[in-house]
Amino acid sequence: MPAQTAYITASLETIGSPQLWTITVAALAVLLAADFMLTRRPHHVRMGEALGWSIFYLALPLAFGAFVWQAFGSATAVEFFTGYMVEKSLSVDNLFVFMLLLSAFAVPDALAQRVLLYGIVGALVLRAIFIALGAAALQSGTWAFLLFGAILIVTAGKLVKDALAGQEQQVDISAMRTIRLLRRFMPVTDDYRGPRLIVRERGRRALTPLALAIVAVFATDIVFAVDSVPAVYGVTEDPFLVFATNAFALLGLRALYFVLIGALTKLRHLNHGLAVILAFIGVKLVLHWAHGIWPQMPEIPTLASLGVIVAVLVAVTLTSVHANRRDRRRTAIVERQKAKGP
């Protein structure tokens, strides 16, 4: 038992001093405040604007990773970049669900970025809570690694099952309990009222469809937090790095949505890749748990994890592009044959 306690304590050493936590949270608050200022006046987001902000939010984690490398060494920096890659790949799937929700609620294009921003803030808050709970669980014993690994392996199995069955991600608004509950207690206007969430109509308060869309986004945030936090704990047990990877992965989602809105539907093999990544990290966590009990058990190095994650993401992108081209060729052949007639 003392050996296990020492193993857990060593694995939970954190680079996040109170000063670093304060600076990071303050910088995050400033960036979110700037985003809220930019979305005060609803407007159509042009590609140039979305690309500019996407590049900015991609440069931030690179700069932060360089700082971590210089201040804490290459091993810690590799953990950060690996965790960031995991969270970014999962956030793209999160973004796809956001896209389905925006479409299901028929959110006007000018209001889409406000909904996305609320969704990002909700995801950050929920993941901060899950990160704290995860750290507490890890402090209580190595069983948490086994639990996290099991969650990820089960999730990966569900993704594979849905992918093999040809089931696409769908959003059934009427099935959401939170939406049904809101409609039961408060009336909902038939149309959007700009960025307003609550209006007064016929002498009583009423929700706008924008409020329902934001609540639906929050509900999906909970589901994604359950998967994403254990996934990054499979890369690093440092709560500060876990929070930083989540924050950097989520910050740029609003701009990235408008860059990838057309490409998201074309990544048909994304769920296959996410299933492989989650299963791999799940196995890594189980081995990490076993190593704490039986030191002779092997562990998967973080650098190897980074290589696997990058290779999987590249592979699913290439296979998706190939499958799309193949379908376009088949469609062209069918159209030519129809044009020729019987």
Results as ranks from 00 to 15, higher is better:
90 L>A: 14
90 L>C: 12
90 L>S: 13
90 L>P: 11
90 L>T: 12
92 V>F: 15
92 V>K: 06
92 V>M: 10
92 V>L: 15
93 D>W: 04
93 D>M: 10
93 D>H: 10
94 N>G: 13
94 N>W: 12
94 N>E: 13
94 N>R: 08
95 L>F: 09
95 L>Y: 09
95 L>R: 11
95 L>H: 09
96 F>V: 13
96 F>C: 12
96 F>A: 09
97 V>H: 13
98 F>A: 14
98 F>Q: 12
98 F>L: 14
99 M>P: 10
99 M>A: 15
99 M>R: 15
100 L>W: 07
100 L>Y: 10
101 L>G: 05
101 L>Y: 07
101 L>D: 11
101 L>H: 03
102 L>Q: 04
103 S>I: 07
103 S>V: 04
103 S>L: 12
103 S>E: 14
104 A>N: 13
105 F>M: 10
105 F>K: 15
105 F>W: 14
106 A>F: 08
106 A>N: 13
106 A>H: 15
107 V>F: 01
107 V>T: 11
108 P>L: 05
108 P>C: 05
108 P>H: 10
109 D>N: 13
109 D>V: 01
109 D>T: 02
109 D>E: 02
110 A>V: 12
110 A>F: 09
110 A>D: 15
111 L>S: 09
112 A>S: 06
113 Q>V: 08
113 Q>A: 07
114 R>T: 00
114 R>S: 06
114 R>C: 01
114 R>I: 05
115 V>G: 10
115 V>M: 01
116 L>K: 11
117 L>E: 10
117 L>R: 06
117 L>S: 00
118 Y>H: 10
118 Y>K: 04
118 Y>P: 02
120 I>W: 02
121 V>R: 03
122 G>L: 02
122 G>E: 04
122 G>V: 01
122 G>T: 09
123 A>S: 05
123 A>N: 05
123 A>Y: 00
124 L>E: 08
124 L>R: 02
125 V>Q: 00
126 L>M: 02
126 L>S: 02
127 R>P: 03
128 A>C: 03
129 I>A: 01
131 I>Y: 04
131 I>C: 05
131 I>Q: 00
132 A>P: 01
133 L>F: 14
133 L>Q: 00
133 L>V: 00
133 L>I: 01
133 L>D: 06
133 L>K: 08
134 G>A: 11
134 G>D: 02
134 G>F: 05
135 A>Y: 11
135 A>R: 06
136 A>S: 11
137 A>C: 01
137 A>P: 13
137 A>G: 08
138 L>V: 10
138 L>Y: 05
138 L>P: 14
138 L>S: 08
139 Q>L: 04
139 Q>A: 09
139 Q>F: 11
140 S>T: 02
141 G>C: 07
141 G>P: 11
141 G>Q: 05
142 T>Y: 07
142 T>N: 00
143 W>F: 10
143 W>M: 14
144 A>K: 03
144 A>V: 13
144 A>S: 05
145 F>A: 11
145 F>P: 03
145 F>T: 09
145 F>L: 15
